[in-house]
């Protein structure tokens, strides 16, 4: 299979698939990164506050790196992509856009998302689009800290007390279908798999279930049965809360879009 050493060497279907993948990666990190920042100053304990703030900072930095790769492929610059793109052009999954909920909900989401992200990064380190593979090999080191943090809280709270268990089970039940929506597949994701840019979403989903179910069960939590995947984000059909998220994220920018920072 053909490898692509830089932005000028990739065209046609492979280029289209790479651009699609980068939008999914960047928009997921950007929106969930923004949601995590909503805990800054508010988390139940100081360490949890710093953790959410740090993970948010990592994710927004990682989103910027993915947007920069998009810019190299001829898309608008990172600021324009975040602050001036039409909402229906975003490709984030619904899970990343949901309101932060209570701390159990956000902690469960951080775990479910970062387990998926870690798997993606492991595979993308071998992507045929080499600029992406190089970036991802760098990001894997920081990602491990997110996964470690998520694991710790899931295992601590899943079976600590009946109250903590109930909170975590409720959080899991409420978002498991949204989590499955991270792996929404379509023509574009299939093209990415065909050209060795990214593994197939179905394969990622199976691997994610294997790892996540094991950790949840060890923590004494029950995997929701018969949950259906909440899809649509990957084709630009978003939850109503996405509109308020974007408005909030852009409120300062929109005061004066031409300002220099």
């Amino acid at each position: 299979m053909k490898r692509f050493p830089d932005a000028t060497s990739i065209d046609g279907e492979a280029r289209e698939a790479t651009i699609g993948l980068l939008y999914r990666l960047a928009d997921d990190d950007m929106t969930l990164g923004h949601r995590h920042t909503e805990w800054t100053g508010l988390a139940p304990i100081l360490e949890a506050d710093i953790a959410f703030s740090s993970i948010a900072q990592d994710q927004i930095g990682q989103a910027r790196a993915f947007y920069t790769l998009l810019h190299e492929l001829g898309e608008p610059d990172p600021d324009a992509l975040v602050f001036a793109r039409k909402p229906e052009d975003f490709r984030c999954c619904a899970l990343c856009t949901l309101e932060k909920g209570n701390w159990a909900f956000s902690t469960m989401r951080q775990f479910l998302y970062d387990m998926a992200k870690q798997l993606r990064l492991q595979h993308l380190a071998e992507s045929n689009y080499e600029p992406l593979a190089k970036l991802v090999r760098k990001l894997r080191g920081e990602q491990k800290y997110h996964v470690m943090h998520g694991h710790m809280w899931i295992s601590r709270l899943g079976d600590a007390t009946s109250e903590s268990h109930a909170y975590m089970q409720e959080a899991l039940d409420a978002q498991y279908g949204y989590a499955l929506g991270m792996f929404e597949s379509n023509e574009l994701t299939a093209k990415a798999a065909k050209h060795g840019i990214s593994p197939a979403e179905e394969q990622l989903c199976d691997e994610w279930k294997g790892q996540v179910h094991e950790a949840l069960e060890l923590a004494g939590l029950n995997i929701p049965q018969n949950a259906t995947a909440k899809s649509g984000g990957r084709i630009g059909s978003h939850e109503p809360v996405f509109t308020t998220l974007l408005a909030d994220m852009r409120s300062v920018y929109e005061l004066d879009p031409a300002a220099t920072w």
């Binding site: 360490e47 703030s53 740090s54 990592d58």
Partner: peptide
């Protein structure tokens, strides 16, 4: 280990 995240991204407490 108190916290894997600290005052800057590269530090733990």
């Amino acid at each position: 280990l108190e916290s894997a995240f600290g005052p800057t991204l590269c530090r733990s407490i």
